[in-house]
């Protein structure tokens, strides 16, 4: 069954690859270019999973994550955070704020795909 994945990242160069990868996995893909747009899209369309970049213009990935987790209606949305920051404190912060998974750039697309499959559960 096809799932809805939101890619929230301001860098087109990664969006191209992520979009291709997710579509290839058979998911429906929406793209948001900044934090505010991402939050709007999540509230409006309630995607099954968000690939959420930490460093974005407007709201940061952390803020978006926190806002999503503060809203009971969005509890089903899975969040996978992507970050160019490799510090383990950011990782701890991400999971404290309610992210389901956290991956540091650069990452293997294969692992990412596995992680997404794991989060979305048996199709």
């Amino acid at each position: 069954m096809s799932k809805h994945v939101l890619i929230a990242d301001d860098e087109p160069n990664i969006v191209i690859s992520l979009e291709f990868l997710m579509k290839r996995e058979g998911h429906r893909v929406t793209v948001a270019r900044d934090g505010d747009a991402a939050l709007d899209t999540i509230r409006r369309e309630r995607p099954d999973l968000v690939l959420l970049d930490v460093m974005m213009p407007g709201k940061s990935g952390f803020e978006v994550c926190q806002a999503v987790r503060a809203d009971e209606a969005l509890a089903a949305v899975k969040i996978l955070m992507l970050s160019a920051k490799g510090r383990d404190t950011d990782l701890a912060k991400g999971s404290a704020l309610g992210a389901d998974a956290y991956m540091t750039k650069p990452f293997s697309t294969r692992e990412l795909a596995d992680k997404v499959r794991e989060l979305l559960g048996p199709a």
Binding site: E11, N13, I14, S17, L18, L21, M55, L82, A84, K85, G86, T104, K105, P106, F107, S108, T109
Partner: peptide
């Protein structure tokens, strides 16, 4: 990191 991530992907 970001650039490498984009490249790798």
């Amino acid at each position: 990191r970001a650039s490498l991530g984009n490249l790798q992907a």
